[in-house]
Amino acid sequence: MTDTPLLSVVGLTRRYGAHLACGDVSFDLWPGEVMGIVGESGSGKTTLLRCIAGQLAPEAGRVMFDTRADGPRDVLRMSEPERRMLSRTDWAFVHQHARDGLRMGVSAGGNVGERLMAVGARNYATIRRSAEDWLTRVEIDPARIDDRPTTFSGGMQQRLQIARNLVTGPRLVFMDEPTGGLDVSVQARLLDLLRGLVRDMGLSAIIVTHDLAVVRLLADRLMVMKAGRVVEAGLTDQVLDDPQDAYTQLLVSSVLQV
């Protein structure tokens, strides 16, 4: 078992004016682990995710990432080009709305190939082959490679976004409500796909969602947020089956049984 966490978040804090969006959040994420962050709307989970992923600047805290070349480094203190490189290679961000993560005017193959080109791939045939391979892996008919995502269903767009993100073999994937807004049957298919990819590629992932059924199936560990604070954290099934905090107990008991 490795002794270096892939990601180590320490004392992360962000306010919007006087409002505390996330306060003093700390945790370690280990290689191959999937962590869920749950909480009601406005609890600060998306702000936290965006601060970790370098999309929002926190006021205080550190985000240490175990880089391939230099070991653990504080992402918040990296130069902009370094951080951009990281977000194209070792990191991936899956948005709730596929439109935010895709280029809607570019073909499906182009969407996947673009990320490869951003890290230096130049051979057209290789890029196209890799795009076809990834479309197949996310269960999109490779015959649709030249179609634009505007002609895809919502579930297909979401799978295309995942292909675009994973094509460079990232080690850490951020997901913001990846199954939100999809039909239940499409959700199940996406969850199955994500779990297979996480296992086969040895990915670590942080998933923000308000859906407790999603975290039970996907996440090894769980963090519960309320009003910007982490009120409880632990193994997913332990937090859901034996919640210790008053808010978590309320959250778990409020879910309709499925």
């Binding site: 632990g234 193994l235 332990q238 034996d242």
Partner: peptide, 9 residues
């Protein structure tokens, strides 16, 4: 049994 599995704290 659930405590042994780490499911209950």
């Amino acid at each position: 049994m659930r405590m042994i599995y780490g499911n209950y704290r």
